[in-house]
Simulated scan of single mutants.
Amino acid sequence: MGITSAWAISAHRDSVVGELAPRVLPLIAAERDVPYARERWQRWQRAPLPSHRTWYGADAETAAAVDSFFELTAPGEHIQQSYGGAGPQDDFWIVDDVSEPDESPDRMFLSVQSKDFALRSFFHAIGPVRAARIPGWCGNFLLTAAQVRATLPEVERALTFTAEERAAADDQNWLGGSTDENVLDGPLRQWRQAAEAGLGLFGANLQIY
């Protein structure tokens, strides 16, 4: 059976961020505290993966490292529980209940993938050092406008490339030819626009079905 996933980064007024915080921030913290989550993160930080073209048919050590990275970058169970109103407390839907009536498509980065995960390709393409500069946990975050402004310099460091660096990242971004906005471009665009507009950001890495 195939899967469909989405990595979304949407911009919101601080009033919306404040309403979401009691629900969303504990979910993100829970993802970070899942058994072995930090261990998987540290393993990837210590030993970046080789080219994705070498993963299949690799030796046992590389295969284990790839499996660990796949677990790290897959949508987490706590965030996932609130995707379809399956949370333990109420019928909160993490997608439907964060949209605003006046929300513009320009205030969102969205990458929907079939049989793949945008966050996974993004992380592999930029590598662990740059990924460590992205706030939150594995594509999931909730930031006020002030936090967006404060984190923008680090996100710019993570996602600004020389021509050679960009070519190397493009080579490892296996979603580069998809019809969505490139995962190497969309997040920084969204951060800069939110900072300029005085908006907060909400990021969610989800498996839709």
Results as ranks from 00 to 15, higher is better:
Arg133Phe: 02
Asp185Ile: 09
Trp44Gly: 04
Thr144His: 11
Arg53Phe: 06
Ala60Ile: 08
Leu175His: 15
Glu77His: 02
Val16Thr: 11
Pro50Ser: 02
Ala86Leu: 11
Thr73Cys: 13
Ala30Trp: 01
Glu19Val: 09
Cys138Glu: 13
Gln81Val: 00
Asp180Lys: 05
Gly57Tyr: 10
Ala29Gln: 11
Val129Cys: 05
Arg38Ile: 02
Gly176Thr: 13
Val129Ala: 15
Ala125Asp: 12
Gln81Asp: 03
Arg133Ala: 09
Ala8Gly: 02
Pro26Arg: 14
Gln80Val: 03
Ala197Asp: 15
Trp7Arg: 09
Ala150Trp: 10
Ala37Gly: 01
Glu164Arg: 11
Met1Ala: 14
Cys138Ile: 14
Arg133Trp: 05
Arg120Glu: 04
Leu27Tyr: 04
Arg107Gly: 05
Asp97Arg: 06
His52Pro: 04
Ile94Ala: 12
Pro88Arg: 06
Trp7Ser: 09
Val148Pro: 01
His12Trp: 12
Leu199Cys: 06
Pro35Tyr: 04
Trp44Gln: 06
Leu110Phe: 06
Pro26Ala: 10
Glu39Met: 05
Glu61Asp: 13
Phe122Pro: 01
Gln207Ala: 08
Gln190Lys: 00
Arg189Glu: 10
Val17Ser: 04
Arg40Met: 08
Asp97Thr: 03
Arg189Cys: 08
Gln89Thr: 02
Gln193Ala: 12
Gln113Asn: 13
Pro128Leu: 07
Trp7Leu: 08
Val16Ser: 10
Glu164Ala: 15
Arg157Ile: 04
Pro105Tyr: 00
Arg46Cys: 02
Ser5Glu: 02
Arg43Glu: 09
Phe69Gly: 03
Ser5Arg: 05
Glu61Ser: 12
Leu159Trp: 07
Ala163Pro: 03
Asp97Trp: 09
Ala65Gly: 03
Gly136Val: 02
Leu184Asn: 11
Val148Thr: 05
Arg13Lys: 14
Ala145Pro: 01
Leu20Ala: 11
Thr160Gln: 13
Arg166His: 11
Val16Arg: 14
Pro26Leu: 07
Ala118Met: 11
Asp91Gly: 10
Gly186Pro: 02
